[in-house]
Design a protein around this nucleic acid. Sequence first.
RNA 1: GCCUCCGUGGCGGAAUGGCAGACGCUGCGGACUUAAAAUCCGCUGACUCGAAAGGGUCGUGCCGGUUCGAAUCCGGCCGGAGGCACCA
Length: 985
Amino acid sequence: MAYDFSEIESKWQKYWLDNRTFAALDPHDAGGMPKAYVLDMFPYPSGQGLHVGHPEGYTATDIVSRYLRMKGVNVLHPMGWDAFGLPAEQYAIKNNVHPRQTTRENIDNFRRQIQSLGLSYDWDREVDTTDPKYYRWTQWIFLQLFNSYFDPINQKAMPIEHLRRELMNQNYVVTPDNEVVINPTTEGMEQLGGEVRVERLWGELSPSEQQQLIDAQRLAYMDEVPVNWCEGLGTVLSNEEVVDGKSEVGGFPVERRPMRQWMLRITAYADRLIKDLELLQWPESLKEMQRNWIGRSEGAEVDFELAGEAASAKPAADEPDEPGDETPVITVFTTRPDTLYGATYMVLAPEHPLVEQITTAQQKQAVDDYRQAVATRSERDRLTVTKEKSGVATGAYAVNPINNEKIPVYIADYVLMGYGTGAIMAVPAHDQRDFDFARKFSLPIKPVVQPVVSAIAPIAGDQNPAQNNSTQTPEKAFEGEGVAIGSPLINGQPTQQAKQTIIKALQADGTGQRSVRYKLRDWLFSRQRYWGEPFPILLDEEGNAHALEESELPLTLPEMDDFKPTGTPEPPLSKAASWTRVQRNGQVFTRETNTMPQWAGSCWYYLRYIDPANDQRFVDKEKERYWMPVDLYVGGVEHAVLHLLYARFWHKVLFDLGHVSSAEPFARLINQGLILGETEFHFFEHEGGKPISVNEITDIHEEATKRGVRLCGTHKPTGEKVYATSVIDALVEKKGQDYVLRSDPSIKVDARAFKMSKSRGNVVNPDQIVEEYGADAFRLYEMYMGPLEAQKPWNTRDIVGMARFLSSVHRNITGDEESNRVVEIVDEPVAEGLERLMHRTIKKVGQDIEALHFNTGIAELIKLNNEMTGLTRMPRELAENFVLMLAPFAPHLAEELWGVLGHNKSLARRPWPTFDPDRMVEASVEVPVQINGKLRDRITIAVDADEAAVFAAAESSPKIKPWIEGKQVKKRLYVPGRLVNMVVQ
RNA sequence: GCCUCCGUGGCGGAAUGGCAGACGCUGCGGACUUAAAAUCCGCUGACUCGAAAGGGUCGUGCCGGUUCGAAUCCGGCCGGAGGCACCA
């Protein structure tokens, strides 16, 4: 009977579903079984359906899951849907259907596609973020965030009530900036006589101040901040969702505008998010991306007082000075406090609040013009690094606290309000940006760091920065470390030590302190869309937020016919008037009408899989402790700073509050490589049609044009922008390292595989592959293409190799009617050579699966199968071991053949075959013989032969003799069982 | 500009200090067949010597180093992919 994959595959898919073959056991049913939580990244069920990239990771985790089950492990391997989100809503608006309906259809399609691949998910645990039974707990977690704060002493999230108590006990006090700090008097820092206490006690605040203070401390808080407003999507976006000034989704322009929004205090966790990366088995590159995104910088804050005239140059319209009103102070953040003596001017961000106050009358017009110009420049322009620095003097001067020198204060757009304090001390000798600015404005450049001269004489051509100490002005700032010069307090100190000395000095006189800053911003958590989780929040008339009771959850979305964006920042939910207005105890409240971003549901889904039906808790404590953390997490690298950062943050909050048992959710993570489209060739040509060799083209990139997406680049010699034309591979040949046109080999062409995209038309549809070759062949091909982590081009032609392998396996066990080949399964021992190969294969395949080296594992199975080809009496032991080893990779065929071998139950939990090391070794072995490291012959020796015997055999070989005759053998090496090498002279 | 990773036949890739190119695709030859498909068997890095059997030389982006021995380790350069980007 022929191998009919479609019949076999649907039969077993049904069997697995009907028999709940892959259901994970709850802890108390698992006995002493070890556990493994094997997880795929949560898919968004898009209308386009599955892409060949999805099954790559899914197949990898499926192979591991199936293998571990056969090894007697209790495996949790779930799948579900991250189903809230913009595309479903946009589709719904366009086609006038409810997003719930679109979402349901998309989920059904995704599930069908995934099930057609024979993936061993425990479908009892399927979750859907848009299900109120699910988002009830998303809202519950939001309330946990709302009802807690980050405690400065314990360095962790604690209930907000704890904060209230500490404030009431006067353990904490409030600074003038409304920060909560430890009461200095309880720290043994009794205030000095006569000095005014600047902190306020809880009791000194009015009730509304108290409320605002508490609200501002919550991990989920509302704030008026400049947000990324995206007109095209009709919503605001988080920093992580904005790429190059455009929305990551859709590429719409994004502008900054101030709005009152929900924020999550992820910055409080910045340090722990960096530090705990050490605990994780993640790719180093991914950890590095998270570290860079968080962007921790250690340095100091330094206060510069305004010099006399500037301080009093306030516009007359200003309120009269209050008693105690001090000279304005500009606080800067620097990572190089050791260069403080080299500060020759200061720069404020144009938006800095002090600008208004310090600008002199003469400079007012120039400053206003500059600020105006900066404000109208688009965000994208400002993001572009321009070589030319711009700025304008404020006319004010500030005093350097270390040497009392007066230095001018500028504003310039190269200083950003959003980082540090929005102000810098400029040290042009040691910062390239400051250097460029100083050159343009003819400001002094004062070197204060001497590069360390290497004791080794500089090699010719080596650019030694130490040569800069001549009188001529250097061309570049020296940004490295060295020894302080021209800085009385620290002269001669190396950079690291100098930094510490300066910080101590500043601290001692109250003009500065140690400080750590982050690039990471708090997470903007509001979206002006309909299709998301509603916030469980009521707003009173003053706009203060009040949490719903847990018993009121879930707060479901109102039924609306019109859920289109309003075109303004007013969210669509505001149109549901009856839903929005809430009366309670005679007071009128409005519901929060923003919804949560798509990332909310995916921040904790891995916890819900553990206990998906629980209606008492988001996850049962005991089950959570059993299953967490996730042992293997596989997904694309595109979530490096979105999902993976957000989820770690939520998990840490839940951990701090005692709701989960592990500090980190995902112990081991692998990024699967992108699957690209088939390789394409392009050649470039001038406007007139004259072809250009690709090595004369630079900056090659894709561009959307009227004729679709085209490859374009810049012609190096002329600077002309040129486009490329696609050529079929028959017109191209390889010449050395390059591909050239057959018709004109002097023209090198561009060869590359592109990311699959609808606009390029190079998307491969998995349904079609499954129909043509079967799911098992598709799975094998995806794994056989190369290492899981590597990016690799798709090549449909290669799949036949896997299809042939599977039908060959089928024939080797069932026989082949067409060629009249009859195979009999016999209870006979396996022939010696084949037996040896079988044991080796068992060992290698197991190792390869554990190391996620599926491509080489499959190669071993192919090799063994090739040796089984032609047998008419198939030993049962060999056939069964082979089928069991094939099962994780090609489960449908394996189950079918398992039945052919006389078994009537699934092999899903049959033990994985074992190997016997004694049966793997041969009595004799062939080893290469090298002379001076070059292969000259091979000899066959007994596997346990001693060195002397091996050398004797090698030297007596007729091919070796000529190489050593008349020469002196200086050294003999024998790597047992591997090789012989002789050094002769 | 900075950070991370990568570079091996016609193609995907294997080998992580010890026989370079496992395994698959492609291509070529053979068997089976009236024929074709399918299947089975063999060859398939380049150059070169030889009638053949069988040899030799070169070869893992380029240049250098360490080592008895390097695709693998070290230094420099070139090319590609990804991330960050006026972050003080």
